[in-house]
Design a protein around this nucleic acid. Structure first.
Length: 396
DNA sequence: TCTGGGGTCCTAGGACCC
DNA sequence: TCTGGGGTCCTAGGACCC
């Protein structure tokens, strides 16, 4: 009889992924705090363990990180390289099981219940994956093993750096209940604060509170879900994905200006760049969408969104831009200081599903054909070969 | 020079339809 | 006549994740 494992889910998480990849060919940085992050107004994307020792953490403003760790070496992210390493790592996972759900470039869930006969117990599989990635990519990862995805994820966090933690079914509550409620997936800063106001500080506190009480505070769906998670109950089913991502439901781009602007022309021009980026990605993916949403963040960080749903889905840059500008003008802003602007298209469907009404769509057809031709030129000659006239010239 | 950029999902009110 | 109820779509905002 095959030994059926009761802990068939692995959560694999690269250790300080961007920082590890960025320094793997830099032995001179092995003993130095390293931060990967953006420029002036950026945040920390990844920090190695030496930098973390000074208090540097992901998503922290770079200005603060530099203050905390002035001796750190700051590296700009190289996403092309990170993508490449990520693909190789995901391929290692797929050698183990076809059921791989990538959560991001550096994290994935693996259902290994069917791999037991071939490869042994989950913890053996975990060690095999770790050594393969270490040998092939010269970076380390940590693995959590459990019966459910969310517990596996918490276990991998506990395993960091460079380790494995197995949580067997009879040990789930003993593992979960001492944790801070903020550790649970789905509990961020706000929810944690609400739970604290109820006097709930640990996962155990949450587990032993009537579900109705939790639901009153957090809403029906969220409350019930978190209460179940506190007992290790997780109805999520892993969905294997062909690529790194499931089909997108929306695509967007936004940009924080280097300095706040009150010039509408600057905003409109940036919206064209963003529209071109988004619509270009939509055309590459073969999708179109009906709802255009803009986002505007002001100097005080308050953020608003405005959206408009079209009668026909579009993947046309000039159309997305036209709607975005209409929404922006409708705000009627008078010299407001703007920090960020964003453009997103939602309700994506495969392009073949889009039914175009000829007499209304002729203009868009013309643009669509023209932009497809530009896409082809871009593929042949590079992105600087073809771009809207408004984005050409001077300081840009 | 506090606070990026890419996403997902939920809620809630009003419109509109049957 | 003085007031239904369910369903879906649209819009705006908010929380969360990596």
């Amino acid at each position: 009889m095959v030994r059926m494992s009761a802990t068939p889910v692995l959560h694999v998480d690269m250790d300080a992924f961007y920082a590890s990849v960025a320094t793997r060919d830099r032995p001179d940085l092995a003993e130095v705090p390293v931060i990967v992050g953006g420029g002036g107004r950026g945040v920390v994307l990844s920090a190695n363990y030496l930098a973390r020792r000074s208090g540097v953490a992901s998503a922290m403003p770079m200005t603060r990180a530099r203050r905390l760790c002035p001796e750190a070496v700051v590296l700009a992210p190289d996403f092309a390289l990170f993508d490449q390493v990520s693909s190789a790592v995901m391929e290692v996972f797929r050698q183990v099981t076809p059921v791989v759900e990538a959560i991001s470039l550096d994290e994935a869930f693996l259902d290994v219940s069917s791999a037991a006969r071939r490869l042994g117990e989950p913890e053996e599989i975990a060690e095999r994956i770790r050594s393969t990635i270490h040998d092939e990519q010269r970076i380390t990862c940590s693995v959590g093993v459990a019966a459910t995805p969310v517990v596996a994820k918490l276990a991998s966090r506990r395993a960091k750096p460079d380790g494995v933690v197995v949580v067997r079914p009879d040990a789930v509550t003993a593992f979960l209940h001492p944790l801070d409620v903020g550790e649970l997936w789905g509990v961020g800063e706000k929810t944690r604060g609400q739970l604290h106001r109820l006097g709930l500080f640990t996962v155990g506190d949450l587990a032993h509170t009537p579900v109705r009480t939790v639901q009153r505070a957090l809403g029906g769906v969220h409350g019930a879900q978190l209460h179940a998670l506190a007992w290790g109950v997780d109805q999520r089913v892993l969905t294997p994905r062909s690529g790194p991502h499931a089909p997108d439901r929306s695509m967007g781009a936004d940009r924080t200006f280097d300095r706040d602007t009150d010039d509408p022309d600057v905003v409109v021009t940036e919206m064209l760049r963003l529209s071109a980026k988004v619509a270009g990605r939509m055309r590459s993916a073969g999708v179109a969408g009906r709802t255009v949403t803009i986002r505007v963040r002001f100097a005080d960080f308050t953020t608003i969104t405005r959206s408009r749903t079209l009668t026909e889905a579009t993947d046309v840059t000039v159309e997305v831009h036209r709607v975005a500008v209409m929404l922006f003008r409708a705000l009627g802003l008078q010299r407001a200081r703007i920090r960020l602007v964003g453009v997103r298209v939602e309700g994506l469907v495969p392009r073949e599903q889009v039914h175009r009404q000829m007499q209304l769509g002729e203009r868009e057809h013309g643009w669509s054909d023209a932009e497809r031709a530009m896409d082809r030129a871009t593929r042949r000659f590079g992105s600087s070969a073809v771009r809207p006239a408004r984005l050409l010239g001077g300081a840009g």
